[in-house]
Amino acid sequence: MDYFLELFLGGLTRGSIYALIALGYTMVYGIIELINFAHGEIYMIGAFTALIVISVLTLMGMNAIAMLVIAGVVAVLYSCAYGYTVEKIAYKPLRNAPRLSALISAIGMSLFLQNYVLLAQTSDFLPFPNLIPEFEFMERYAHIIGSTEIVILITTTIVMILLTILIKFTRIGKAMRATSQDKTMATLVGINVNRVISVTFIVGSATAAIGGVLIASHVGMINFYVGFIAGIKAFVAAVLGGIGSIPGAVLGSFVLGWTESFATGYVSSDYEDVFAFLFLVLILIFRPAGILGRSEKNKI
């Protein structure tokens, strides 16, 4: 039973990380129908920036919690800046181009950013210090769940709540929802669509950066390629839940996290990804638009 619980919570942790990345995919897709292939790289850049900040601060001898907070804030800021810039360079000029062209542009961006970090930094795996403290009260449960996992779960929950508030109750959130339903109409009622798209990229990048910092502390190392792999997984999660739907992305991420965790725990970690993808296919066969996806509302 403990083993099951461990796998369950492990899946939950994984799922929440995927969710933080998947949100960016799904929000961008909801608004401009683009698979933002470079999104995983934004997450990677967030983690790298955090590592750089932490290394510099360590030299200055700062305490762990303060470092973590500062590194997190800087990582979020920089990821947002990258997300914003990538959109302006690689996607904005392609608003009216065939959709595949924008996809190829995104792939190019992804390659560019990977190699940019590879060349400017290193191709090796770098150790990422775990700055999340071990809580004493957690010791009793240490065989089931660690402190880092708890922090990940709590942070994810907070981010989700903030995001929900942003989208449901703020002006920009309303504008985002309107734009995702009908871009032309949104323009007609005076919404600045370009601004909405920029904000979407910024918000998505911010959550990805938080995910990046958390998973890097959890796993303990990063390199230039971690973004691509995590990105693909998160994208699978977004599709699983129904791309374009925010609750869908979260649900899809948990489902994916659990699938992987249980497949690894009970079968073999070699085939973890095979199970993940087979599960995806299975769900899409029965629900072609994903678990919470709206089926084509396209009126004929």
Binding site: R99, V274, V281, L284
Partner: peptide, 23 residues
């Protein structure tokens, strides 16, 4: 299995198929 899927859903399932074969 992918007959009913459209656009990007197809993309991710085919991607998964490729990965499954490789794994």
């Amino acid at each position: 299995p992918v007959l009913r899927l459209r656009g990007d859903y197809l993309a991710i399932v085919t991607l998964g198929f490729g990965e499954i074969i490789r794994i």
